[in-house]
Design a protein around this nucleic acid. Structure first.
Length: 351
DNA sequence: AACTTTATCAACCGCCACGAT
DNA sequence: TATCGTGGCGGTTGATAAAGT
């Protein structure tokens, strides 16, 4: 064992990605789409292995990534999913739009674990630590009494965990859904969600929305899962799919939260942004060399103009809040940083 | 101000599964 | 059937930033 075979062929770069590399990879993927990762470095002119490119794209460059802090709802969802799935981060990430498995894993290890421990909950078993100890002492495999956990959601509800069910104020994960979670592919290419309406929609909707056809290479973008090699395929909402139900519950809640906060949501900007990307993908992008894809875009320069100088009225209030009717193509996309940071306006406004 | 500790997160490593040959 | 190439996943590491002393 050792490094991947693709990495052994030649001396390849390792470590942090430079802006130039990011630009090359982004331009390549936006132009040609996601296909064979092993051929990407050569085609894109990168001294990286395909795996590294894939990771960089998935964890950082994808335009549909949500950046910024995890909401209380996301946090609750991660905890509940972790109870069912354990450390299957990819499957957990599949239920959290815009989040990557790496991000969730990091968040779990750095924050949630400690939070649960502070609350007296074993982050592995999701049971009260005292009960875990008692159980181990008694060697009793079954626990029928639900455990009341002092943690509460932002809505003030209480979690109840038993061996067979998990409840929160929105969803119930039963044994049936547990089965679905544990058997459902993490890279479920069939789940697709309409960011504007909050419902899963058939492919035709996306074709209308984006003008998508198979010539576009964005096989991984519309879904947050990595349907890298497939077409942009979606499925009708299935009543039997508890996982999708839970996703929907969560995402509907997100939309509600977003609107109630009178702010835009990254996800809701997405279709227009995507169309913009697609319409430009033959031309590629120029990269503002002074910019980094940084959450602190408010203080970065965009085409020589500090973005804070744009003022809140032009983009945030004027356009983003009425995103549903805006044609973003009227704003020429000239730099990736501009593109991505605009897409994440809302998220970082909350920081 | 200097140093140490802790937290965060991007990236790598090693393994596994799967398809092609 | 065996081997190889590749993608995907989870665990881990190391660099950096932030907080504490």
């Amino acid at each position: 064992m050792g490094r991947h075979s693709c990495c052994l062929k030649q001396k390849l770069r390792k470590g942090l990605w430079s802006l130039e590399e990011d630009e090359k990879l982004f331009n390549h993927i936006t132009r040609f789409g996601v296909g064979c990762w092993s051929s990407v470095p050569k085609q894109a002119g990168l001294q990286r292995c395909g795996k590294s490119c894939r990771l960089r794209w998935i964890n950082y460059l994808r335009p549909d990534l949500k950046r910024g802090m995890f909401s209380q709802h996301e946090e609750d969802l991660i905890i509940s999913l972790h109870e069912v799935l354990g450390n299957r981060w990819a499957q957990i990430a599949a239920q959290l739009p815009g989040r990557t498995d790496n991000e969730i894993k990091n968040f779990w290890n750095s924050c949630l674990k400690k939070k649960l421990l502070k609350q007296g909950i074993d982050p592995t078993t999701h049971k009260a630590i005292t009960e875990t100890c008692i159980k181990e002492e008694n060697k009793s495999p079954e626990a029928t009494t639900p455990i009341q956990i002092p943690s509460a959601t932002s809505q003030g509800s209480t979690f109840l965990i038993s061996d067979s069910n998990y409840y929160d104020n929105n969803s119930i994960i039963t044994e049936a859904s547990r089965e679905i979670f544990t058997t459902k592919s993490a890279l479920d290419p069939l789940f697709c969600y309409d960011f504007q309406s909050g419902y899963n929609l058939p492919l035709s909707h996306y074709q209308n929305q984006f003008g998508v056809n198979s010539s576009y290479g964005f096989t991984s973008m519309p879904s947050l899962t990595n349907s890298d090699h497939g077409n942009l395929s979606v499925t009708e909402f299935s009543d039997n799919n508890s996982a999708s139900k839970i996703s929907s519950l969560f995402m509907n809640e997100q939309v509600k939260e977003s609107s109630s906060n009178n702010s835009s949501n990254m996800s809701t900007i997405y279709p227009s942004q995507m169309r913009n990307v697609m319409e430009n993908n033959n031309a590629g992008f120029s990269w503002d060399g002074d910019n980094k894809l940084d959450p602190l875009f408010h203080f970065q320069q965009v085409n020589g103009i500090k973005s804070e100088e744009f003022g809140t009225s032009s983009w945030e209030e004027g356009q983003l809040q009425t995103h549903n009717s805006i044609d973003f193509t009227s704003y020429p996309l000239t730099s990736l940083s501009e593109d991505l940071t605009q897409a994440n306006f809302d998220v970082f406004h909350h920081i």
